[in-house]
Write a protein that binds this DNA or RNA. Structure first.
Lengths: 197, 197
DNA sequence: CTCTAAAAACCGACCGGTCGTTATGTATTT
DNA sequence: AAATACATAACGACCGGTCGGTTTTTAGAG
């Protein structure tokens, strides 16, 4: 049982180091040697555990998307009323993003690769649709319980996802702003609507 | 006057080819040789007109952002009432994006570079703030003319920008969907608000 | 208009270096 | 001793950028 532990340790070190590098410098600009240095491992170990640089990226991505989905599902399943649940989610998402810098930078790399690579794209679309389903369910619940207006749940979920993506995108290039507040304000405006009545 | 025309032609050919390559394969994955091939020019010509690959990218970006700003300002300056103006803008933006595939792919590259490169980031933030000002002004007008609720104009502009960015982001990896309709629906929901009253 | 010399535009072979990957050997665990 | 885990060095492809030389254009003089 000593080998298994050793194996997991080095694999973990490589994945962690790769996540940091990819987030900081991007996929293409990150060399395998750099990852190995950071992980305190040799290239031999790297290619013993992973068959290519791409595979490391994909492994990283998979776990990240799974984490995100779990987080979303957790908050969407809460029992408080839906508008408040949405406001809470916006707060907590921001916190989660800001907390783990190494993961956020991967977001861009995901999109860049997804928009070109067929495999990555299909996986990304599938994941995105799962997120959309989660939001759609949440909104349906809100309509059912009467806290939300009878909008089209799919479109509304689309808006939520887009808003989140857009805010997140901007937070990447302008980290100094208080995105927690911006996100909360945005969500409030979305809930209230723009048109005067 | 013959040299000047020649100069502009080759410069244009290089820029066009570079735009296509960057959009298709990404900045890092595109070689200078490839750009030259596509432009029907030699490397000598390339480095005669541009001092580096980066400079070509920046030149491309600058013109693209300028075009976008001009488009935004044009529609924001219209005289129709603001909610309708917003709906029209959402339609037309989608059309413009879908029309010129070579430019849309640059969007991701812009962000990827902006999130890391200091120069690109500062330029991007500045541009984004100009967009934000345009939207802010538009919303202020809407509030003044009574068609919009008295929201915080800055936050509202933020929502519009984020929504647009998010929608655009998704359209890159899932081009088959009818993003014109999605955008219009999203805008409608944003205008109406989610909360039941 | 012609000739000419400089300037501008362009070509393509080449360089130094980097990168992902592999082949081979060694230590550790089973 | 067999298998697993890792280290080291080297390979070969590639890439951004350079450089010496060639063609085309421009400008001025005759």
């Amino acid at each position: 049982m000593k080998n298994e532990q050793r194996r997991e340790e080095t694999r973990g070190a490589i994945l962690d180091a790769a996540a940091l590098c990819f987030a900081e410098k991007g996929y293409a600009e990150t060399g395998v040697a750099e990852i190995c240095d950071r992980a305190g491992v040799s290239k031999g170990a790297f290619y013993y555990h992973f068959e290519s640089k791409q595979k490391v990226f994909l492994a990283l991505l998979e776990s990240w998307l799974a984490d995100l989905q779990e987080m979303l599902a957790h908050f969407a399943g809460g029992t408080v009323n839906v508008p408040e649940s949405l406001l809470k989610m916006s707060h907590l998402m921001q916190g989660a993003f800001q907390a783990d810098q190494s993961k956020t930078g991967l977001f861009l790399e995901l999109w860049a690769q997804a928009s070109r690579d067929e495999t990555v794209r299909k996986a990304s679309i599938a994941t995105y649709q799962r997120y959309q389903k989660i939001f759609t369910g949440l909104i349906k619940r809100g309509i059912r319980e009467g806290s939300l207006a009878p909008v089209d749940p799919v479109s509304a979920a689309q808006v939520l996802l887009s808003l989140a993506s857009g805010l997140f995108l901007q937070s990447l290039i302008d980290p100094r702003r208080d995105w927690g507040k911006v996100t909360a304000d945005s969500m409030q405006i979305l809930l209230d609507g723009l048109i005067r009545r």
